[in-house]
């Protein structure tokens, strides 16, 4: 049991860190530009496909990863300059319409290029096996994800909290007019934030690729999870996104793994078998509804 809990806690941490890569970009775009970007999940899907294709072509996972991050950053910049920039000042509903349209387009483009069947993406060969860890074995690849996740999350945190650029970003998130008065080039800042967000999406996409299927529509479910994360954490707050990601990642993973067992100890097996998965899959939504009920602005509101 203890081993199961530790293993699942690690899985939860790993999933939470990947969610953070998505949520970080989403929360900044949302917080600074007041923009609902439903197509954020499509960047993640695009990153996974691009990464898988580049890995196959080059034979190197690392090259695949870097190519996909660079490629999606470029696509992100193009998207921001040609289209999304025009939507910042618009109504949320128009943003929903336009970015939902982008989801449709992105899914079809991916289908045109790679077909409807899921792509296979293998983890690097030397990381495919398990490693011994505190007396039990744990997949090496998942440890890599955790390591990369912690590194990137740390760097991002430092970038936002310790650097001048980060200060601009935070100023923009909490008070946009003020940022403009301070003479920050908000336009360029937006483009930069968007490119960074897209690259992080791509990173999450290719890292999760070997664990989940690389397929059309993979962005939709994770998009909603990312929204749950940033709403829990407070829109526009990097710290909130981090805490929210880890919360959602671990609650979801641990809930799915442990809840059926726990229920079996208190109710009839048949009921536990039915209810366990049902409750486990809605836990994070219950969490979000609960948090919004008691703290309607999320845990760490970015705006005063």
């Amino acid at each position: 049991m203890t081993q199961l809990v530790i293993e699942q806690a690690l899985n939860g941490l790993q999933f939470g860190l990947m969610l953070f890569l998505l949520a970080a970009g989403l929360t900044l775009v949302f917080g600074i530009m007041d923009m609902i970007n439903l197509s954020h999940g499509s960047l993640y899907m695009g990153g996974a496909y691009l990464g898988a294709a580049a890995t196959h072509a080059s034979g190197s996972f690392l090259i695949g990863m870097l190519t996909s991050m660079a490629g999606m950053a470029v696509i992100g910049v193009l998207l921001e300059i040609t289209l999304l920039r025009k939507l910042y000042q618009r109504d949320h509903l128009v943003q929903v319409l336009a970015t939902f349209a982008l989801i449709l387009i992105a899914n079809e483009v991916v289908r045109m290029l790679w077909g409807s069947k899921p792509l296979m993406l293998n983890p690097p060969a030397n990381l495919a096996g398990p490693v011994e860890l505190l007396g039990f074995s744990y997949p090496a690849y998942r440890l890599l994800i955790i390591a990369v996740g912690i590194t990137v999350a740390g760097l991002l945190y430092l970038l936002v909290t310790r650097t001048r650029t980060g200060m601009w970003v935070r100023a923009g998130a909490s008070n946009r007019e003020m940022a403009e008065v301070l003479g920050i080039n908000v336009r360029r800042l937006f483009t930069g934030v968007f490119a960074l967000g897209a690259a992080l999406c791509a990173l999450a996409g290719i890292l999760l690729g070997p664990l989940l299927a690389v397929q059309v529509g993979m962005g939709e479910s994770i998009l909603i999870l990312s929204f749950v994360v940033i709403v829990i954490g407070g829109i526009g707050s990097i710290r909130g996104a981090l805490i929210g990601s880890l919360l959602v990642g671990s609650v979801d993973t641990l809930g799915r793994a442990l809840l059926p067992t726990l229920l079996r100890s208190v109710t009839a097996p048949e009921i536990a078998r039915q209810l366990g998965p049902a409750i486990a899959s809605i836990l994070i939504y219950l969490l979000m509804a609960g948090i919004l009920f008691w703290r309607p602005q999320g845990l760490f509101p970015a705006r005063g």
Binding site: K86, L97, A98, F100, A101, I103, L104, N107
Partner: peptide
């Protein structure tokens, strides 16, 4: 859906 997406985008803009 590709073309529908384009139409929706045009409407939005």
């Amino acid at each position: 859906h590709f073309f529908i997406g384009l139409v929706l985008l045009a409407i939005a803009l």
